[in-house]
């Protein structure tokens, strides 16, 4: 008799547990050891049972899946974790992966793929469903790239223009800057245009980047 893969399910919805139960029951090499309705219950049951892997939901009362992952990986680093969740936000998926999950599958995944995911993860492979991979590929570079402006270009700005640039980068509108520097908002507009021309920048976003990169504001 082959060694069956010992599995636990943690989900706060009985219908999900029932569904998973019937899938697992159909696969010979899989064995359901226990089921839990939240993270705390899961941890308690883990103390008494030996497991190979857990199918874990993120959204649960008491302790959610992400928190549970951290605790489990700390205490039982060998137990594999497959997340089965409705969430498809990149940030959450990344967070889950960061916490050390071995697989991430969406709850509306087809049965065959789900079984494949369980098998892969239990064998120690990482498994991400196709949709998850797609989401993770959507990568926008958040970090600023190479500095936009060098110092000498910034030196061409007059004191007034530098002051206006600082104020813009502090989130003040033209009108507010006008009031703060006791000049008309049209003059502020002219200063802004001049700054943009001198620095060869065409939008406010980059102006603010320049201000940050050159330490004009902190």
């Amino acid at each position: 008799m082959i060694n069956k893969i010992k599995i636990a399910i943690a989900d706060d919805h009985q219908i999900m547990i029932d569904g998973l139960k019937s899938i697992i029951g159909k696969e010979e090499e899989l064995e359901l050891v226990f089921e839990a309705n939240d993270g705390k219950m899961l941890l308690k049951l883990l103390e008494k049972n030996k497991l190979d892997m857990i199918i874990l939901d993120i959204d649960m009362p008491e302790m959610n899946g992400l928190e549970a992952t951290v605790a489990i990986k700390k205490q039982y680093p060998d137990i594999k974790i497959l997340i089965l969740s409705m969430y498809q936000e990149k940030a959450l998926i990344e967070k889950a992966l960061l916490n050390g999950v071995d697989g991430y599958v969406l709850k509306n995944t087809d049965q065959e793929k789900l079984v494949k995911a369980i098998r892969d993860v239990s064998l120690g492979k990482k498994y991400l469903s196709g949709r998850i991979k797609e989401i993770l590929k959507n990568d926008h570079n958040v970090e600023p790239k190479a500095p936009l402006i060098r110092n000498e270009l910034l030196n061409t700005l007059t004191e007034r223009e530098l002051e206006v640039l600082k104020q813009i980068a502090q989130g003040y509108s033209n009108k507010e800057i006008g009031t703060r520097l006791e000049i008309s908002h049209r003059t502020v507009d002219t200063h802004r245009t001049n700054v943009m021309q001198k620095l060869n920048i065409h939008n406010i976003a980059n102006l603010i980047k320049v201000a940050f990169e050159n330490g004009l504001i902190r």
Partner: peptide
């Protein structure tokens, strides 16, 4: 969740 379970 109900829909997900139903799908399973």
């Amino acid at each position: 969740q109900l829909l997900a379970g139903l799908k399973l």
